[in-house]
Amino acid sequence: MSDRKVVGIIGLFDDPDSLIAAAKKVRDTGYTKWDCHTPYPVHGLDDAMGLKPTPMPYITITAGLIGGALAMYMMYWMSAVDYPVRIGGKPYFSWPAFVPITFEAFVLFAGLATMGGMIVLTKLGSWASPLHDNDVMGEVTSSRMGVVLDADDEKFGEDSARDLLGEVGCQDIRVLYAADDEEA
């Protein structure tokens, strides 16, 4: 397969300082469709890449509040509206006794939303990617750090991308090809 489609270029680094320097350079050059791949979270890389803050906390707190409100409403409706039973001489809507379950429902909903939100935002559940298809995945999940420039970016050119990565001192630059398309 000589004419396989180029989907991007990866530059592999061996230490975090070079990675940060490379990320800053790529960010300042104006690339938008690119990413860094690391075996563990590298401090300061979010800034170096110019990423916007994650909306995760808002997802968690919103879901938690909805869960807590639903639980309190459910207990109110079941104990005071649908089938009121007088227990221990307490009012039908004895809300202090409902606090523990309200709290647990807050945590449960918040937890489920955190998991779900994380899976959606990190685009987990998609098993196909140029990295998987080109066998560099193992490098960046074990020890090395890669900067991937996506071919979809309007600034992308195979030679210019190569030059950019070379400029920041990358020793190991590889071209990523599309997977063999079975329909084609």
Partner: peptide, 29 residues
């Protein structure tokens, strides 16, 4: 299909922190 992408790590680390934050009062409760 985890790829170690930093765009994923960013959300992931926050999610992990949030889980820690949720678990703390939970375990006491």
């Amino acid at each position: 299909g985890w790829k170690g992408s930093n765009r994923a790590w960013q959300h992931y680390e926050k999610a992990y922190l949030l889980f820690a934050g949720l678990s703390t009062p939970l375990v006491l409760s």
